[in-house]
Write a protein that binds this DNA or RNA. Sequence first.
DNA 1: CGTTCACTTCGGCGCCGGCCGAAGCATGGT
DNA 2: ACCATGCTTCGGCCGGCGCCGAAGTGAACG
Lengths: 226, 226
Amino acid sequence: MSDSNRIAVTASLLGDPARANMLAALMDGRALTAKELAYAAHVTPQTASGHLGKLADGGLLAAEKQGRHRYYRLASPLIGQMLEGVMAVAGPESPRSTAWRGGEALRTARTCYDHLAGRLGVALADALSARGHVTLGTDGGEVTEQGARFLDGFGASPAPGRRVFCRPCLDWSERRPHLAGRVGAALACRCFALGWIARQRDTRAVAITTAGRQGFQQTFGFAIGD
Amino acid sequence: MSDSNRIAVTASLLGDPARANMLAALMDGRALTAKELAYAAHVTPQTASGHLGKLADGGLLAAEKQGRHRYYRLASPLIGQMLEGVMAVAGPESPRSTAWRGGEALRTARTCYDHLAGRLGVALADALSARGHVTLGTDGGEVTEQGARFLDGFGASPAPGRRVFCRPCLDWSERRPHLAGRVGAALACRCFALGWIARQRDTRAVAITTAGRQGFQQTFGFAIGD
DNA sequence: CGTTCACTTCGGCGCCGGCCGAAGCATGGT
DNA sequence: ACCATGCTTCGGCCGGCGCCGAAGTGAACG
């Protein structure tokens, strides 16, 4: 089988709306049951079962059985990255048709596998860059020395000691980069731990709490949230 | 239309073998005619015409008419990046079934949109890293000062003056990173210009010339090619 | 132990999309 | 002007795949 046939096989796994719905639901890094994924995909459990089997056989999902429950998660960060790449190309809807449910919340703040995206994610990247905590270029970026001290103090130290590079991830709703990689993941983890943001049921839109609005304003200098 | 339906629509464009073949053929950054793409995809011109229309309508290809010839190319580097991401997940064939035609040449050296991939691409990244010309981490890397001087001297200066970050791209055949981004593109461009590598007709496998074997050995310290 | 729930498998149906032959239009060459 | 070539469109065919009802297996609960 040629390499482009392998592309076709992998891509066709994403190319069904039900399966795409499932993968998107798993993009917040959590594991969900087959039943929850069936609900997310708007199909019956039997249909979902077939789809999940294909995704697992194709190496995109990892399955774990707990009693009668079957939990699925994305098989690796690489799958998350691939989905990000497809999303970046698929892009947002045209501004004229943004009336679909939940869209605004996703645009405000959401998880993108293990890091934050949407306006919140981009605002974090912008603030860190503007304050000289990270230096960002076209192909990448790096945490500065003062940035490392800042992140240490904030409780989001990405790695001890060594140089810490940043992986920009083109945000599909903002069309500008947010921070992926270890830095992005550490920031997200810390913000959840502080209670500034909270996961919601049935969506990977992330809620910004009152504490979060204050925290982002005082610590990073931007206003976000209702 | 929800974001995951947009994923499905975009992915399904890649999910057909004929279309995947065409996109793969265009991954070396060249523009090809509809006829050439039909040949690459092993379908008739009329079938190819329908597929190309879909890829162009979907924003994946850009079309340009020259007389009776219709040239298509990938619409943007972002498309190349997306395809890289799918290829990284699709991965190589299992070692037991590598007998397909042209596979070894692709693994040795090929273009990955605008930069070099395969063993050659990975060897370049390794050599630059080992010699201290670039520093590479998990999420990215940067050209060092001595590295910038080296690249200047080599004729592959990626950008004047400013800090130059590197974008690692997981090589699907080697499962380790080669260099994408501006640095990778500048290296590839220079190696073509030096005649160390040459494009081949009907494949994005890149031929390593005799001059190239000597040049890579003397300048970068690795042996590659027949 | 019986009931409920989660999940999987089977079988049948219908839709969709890729395929190509045929035909038509446009361009290039002699 | 005629012929060859590149490309597109149309129509029909067929295979593949997602869908769900029905049924079965296994786990959890009272």
